[in-house]
Write a protein that binds this DNA or RNA. Structure first.
Lengths: 247, 247
DNA sequence: TCGAGGCTTTGACCCAGATCAATTAGGACG
DNA sequence: CGTCCTAATTGATCTGGGTCAAAGCCTCGA
């Protein structure tokens, strides 16, 4: 999907480590140290990267691909609680196990930092600690934003919310704010969307069809989406907010 | 409600500042410094403590009473995204405005620290920064736990989840894990419960009646609840998890 | 003691979204 | 170029929870 190079603008263009997670201020010494504890991992679509409760040996960030955080009840009902897109952070500094299943939705490449050295570094460099706190607060805001979607929005509004979040995210990766015409590929199956939105996949399909019929979106194939008018979509989402979601 | 003194055991019993938020390691110097920037505020039931977007001049923790974090859509639909009970933390270190409305559900006393000095202190004392990160991660886990409740549970399970969380919380304030018989007072109106659970107040009322009829809970008046068998309640909640929620 | 007004409960009915069940695309591959 | 397999669409029907409406029940103040 998204190539590493394509990511750079949204992260930091001036240092060798391109991930927002760690290059808040680009101190050369810290970056050099980070390089020494860095490695890459890749996963295939469908593979579970971490099971809830698993010991975590790294923290890192997505380089390419899409992964989801999911929670499952014994009877099989599942709820996605976060969507990880390139440059998103994976891991819980200071915790030694995963809280949720992390599943690769497409082929995934992740940039990992070994956990203990990373945490030591965090303890000694306040601005990294601060950056992590801010990122965690962002995630918390996003999660709470999503609680409103799950608890109070209709199926149509839920779909529009999800589409506008993905569109916005994709568009701003390129640069600037998403307005007017936006084009992107859905990184999720209908079932994954349903799990995210607390719906069934049939309802997701029906509502997408309805939005298409009403001209809010244009579909080519199953995944390629054109939004002719971003404002219209945001309106359908019943959304005053300006961003949010995405772990 | 809960008196400050009653809180001490759940916080730190060995230092003059009893709030979990800040006494992670009880360094005397830090505590003395905290004392100099500390003050109290109180609010009446129903009063809005902060509006979303408000400038925040303090961070602090609840001493007594109950407050809620709520989000509202233009058409009036509202979703509660967090429940603040005594010892819970209020504020977003490093941010200068509130993300959600904070509303006092009962009369509230809050212990506040002036924001700038508190943040300076945080920047200079890594263990406080670390503690805040851990608390934020707890909140994030709780929020995501709640996403499962909102997205996938039935009305009955939602009610049981809320009751078991409040029961557990109340019981463990006293000490130990909540099992067997548990007694507590509901700190929320039916409407507030509905806003928390993404239901209507009528449905909340009906499901509470149903749980009473089935002997899962016993009610005296509208608010005083006895849970004869905590395991039974957790079972109704469809919950394998062990805690969670509560900002 | 008696209202008045705010919670709460309960009933009757309805509808958005779930469930069950076919069909219909798209690929990937021989 | 078929054919197999999985994702997606579409239809028919059912139901959990919403909506509207009418009592009940505390509490507080006169």
């Amino acid at each position: 999907m998204t190539k590493h190079a394509k990511l750079a603008p949204s992260a930091c263009g001036e240092c060798p480590i391109r991930h927002r997670a760690v290059c808040a201020k680009c101190n050369a010494d810290e970056l050099a140290e980070l390089e020494t504890i860095k490695y890459y991992r890749s996963y295939e679509a469908g593979q579970t990267i971490l099971w809830a409760g698993d010991h975590m040996e790294f923290v890192g960030s997505l380089v390419s691909g899409v992964a989801t955080l999911t929670q499952t009840m014994e009877d099989g009902r599942t709820q996605m609680v976060g969507l990880l897109l390139p440059s998103d952070f994976v891991g819980r500094p200071g915790r030694d196990s995963a809280a949720y299943n992390v599943v690769a939705t497409s082929d995934v490449v992740m940039c990992c930092f070994r956990k203990t050295p990373f945490e030591n570094m965090m303890a000694s460099t306040p601005h990294i600690a601060h950056r992590l706190l801010q990122m965690t607060l962002d995630e918390l805001d996003a999660a709470r934003e999503w609680m409103l979607v799950l608890g109070r929005k209709t199926a149509r509004e839920k779909i529009a919310s999800l589409l506008s979040i993905i569109a916005r995210r994709d568009a701003t990766l390129g640069m600037g704010v998403a307005t007017g015409r936006v084009v992107f590929d859905l990184p999720l199956t209908r079932e994954a969307m349903a799990d995210y939105l607390g719906l069934t996949l049939e309802t997701v399909s029906r509502q997408i069809s309805a939005l298409r019929k009403d001209g809010v979106i244009v579909l080519e194939g199953k995944r390629h989406v054109t939004v002719p008018d971003m404002d219209r979509l945001m309106d359908e989402a019943g959304d005053d907010s300006d961003g949010g979601l995405l772990a």
